[in-house]
């Protein structure tokens, strides 16, 4: 029996890793949202002086990693691992960013849940004493995701009311064995859940059951209740997914309404015409690395439960009529 494991899916870090620096970079549309003052850099356009959107995405990911390292008062050689991922086939943004960074690299894919996956793995590595400092980072880009998963930008189609807008941005977090706040204290790793939703324009509803499962599992494993947190925040369920999550959790006896938020709902103003809200790896990442981290430093929040959600589909699986398997990972961020 592992001494660090709680219940069936949660681990408690014995030496909770510290988040000693973060960085968030966003595109112009995200820069008009309510968290504009929390980002390290807001791009003036989506191409960022590169010759393709893929190159632009790689560049913002690389820069977010560099800024996070700088914000942590470290230099690249002090970083033991880079754990990164993105949405593109073969996670090229992460791989290509790592090509230029010279940090030992572990590439991961968890769709939009990737940051939480990276932080979970990173915390295990740091807590286990295998590294002093490492970076967990992710990126997504509206234009690269749209052409891979949906339609060409200039195609004259209408977006479904439940569709979500992929966030252009990158978030990076430096985890360290140093003793300072905020810390990563608990991690609940989700199971893949599929409730049979097949509409790839309705990711929020597809992912909500995964979020619900992981949240309940987290409370059961740890014995905590919603009252133990100041903020419970899901990654990118959007307005419909958030509504479903809140309602079904209430039915199962967990009332989180007064402290529950969703990064996808928060990141844009409703009048920005994003339908159900934001999505993409960067959605939960820039909100966490920007707003949540900075508010935790100020002591505005002391106990935050982040549940990042991801839809593990591909265009191939969609075209073959498969339903959408989804995942959610929870991490507790606390000021001790």
């Amino acid at each position: 029996m592992s001494i660090k494991k709680l219940g069936s899916q949660t681990i408690r870090f014995e030496n909770p890793p510290s988040i000693i620096g973060t960085a968030s970079i966003v595109g112009p549309k995200e820069g008009q949202g309510q968290f504009k003052d929390y980002y390290d850099l807001i791009l003036s356009d989506n191409i960022y002086a590169e010759s393709s959107w893929e190159k632009a995405e790689k560049k913002i990911l690389k820069e977010a990693i560099e800024i996070a390292i700088k914000n942590a008062d470290l230099t690249t050689p002090k970083i033991d691992y880079l754990i990164a991922g993105d949405l593109l086939n073969q996670i090229i943004s992460a791989g290509f960013a790592a090509r230029e960074l010279e940090i030992p690299f572990l590439g991961i894919y968890g769709a939009c849940s990737t940051l939480a996956e990276g932080v979970t793995l990173g915390s295990i590595i740091v807590d286990g004493g295998f590294a002093e400092n490492l970076v967990a980072a992710v990126s997504s880009h509206f234009c690269t995701a749209e052409r891979q998963f949906r339609f060409p930008l200039e195609l004259g189609n209408q977006r479904s009311p439940t569709s979500q807008w992929t966030v252009t941005g990158a978030g990076a977090m430096v985890l360290s064995s140093k003793q300072q706040n905020p810390r990563v204290t608990l991690a609940t790793t989700g199971k893949v859940i599929d409730m049979g939703e097949s509409d790839s324009n309705n990711m929020g509803a597809a992912m909500a059951p995964a979020a619900i499962d992981t949240i309940i599992r987290h409370f059961q494993d740890t014995g905590k209740t919603p009252d133990d947190y100041d903020l419970i925040v899901t990654g990118d369920l959007g307005s419909l997914g958030k509504e479903i999550t809140e309602e079904l959790l209430k039915q199962k006896g967990y009332n989180i309404s007064n402290k529950y938020a969703d990064c996808g709902v928060l990141i844009y103003y409703p009048e920005q015409d994003v339908h159900a809200g934001g999505s993409g790896c960067a959605c939960s990442a820039v909100v966490t690395c920007g707003y949540i981290f900075k508010e935790m430093l100020k002591g505005q929040y002391n106990k935050v439960l982040l549940i990042a959600t991801g839809a593990l589909l591909s265009t191939t699986s969609s075209q073959q009529g498969e339903t959408i398997p989804c995942i959610a990972h929870a991490i507790s961020l606390e000021n001790l």
Binding site: R147, L153, E154, L155, G156, N157, Q158
Partner: peptide, 29 residues
Amino acid sequence: YDKIGKFAGAGSVVPITGFANSIVSPAME
């Protein structure tokens, strides 16, 4: 054309101009 399409939906998809749109938009991208 994508702005027209966002408003018009099938109104700009179904005419032959929409066929042209479906050719140029992926090719350009």
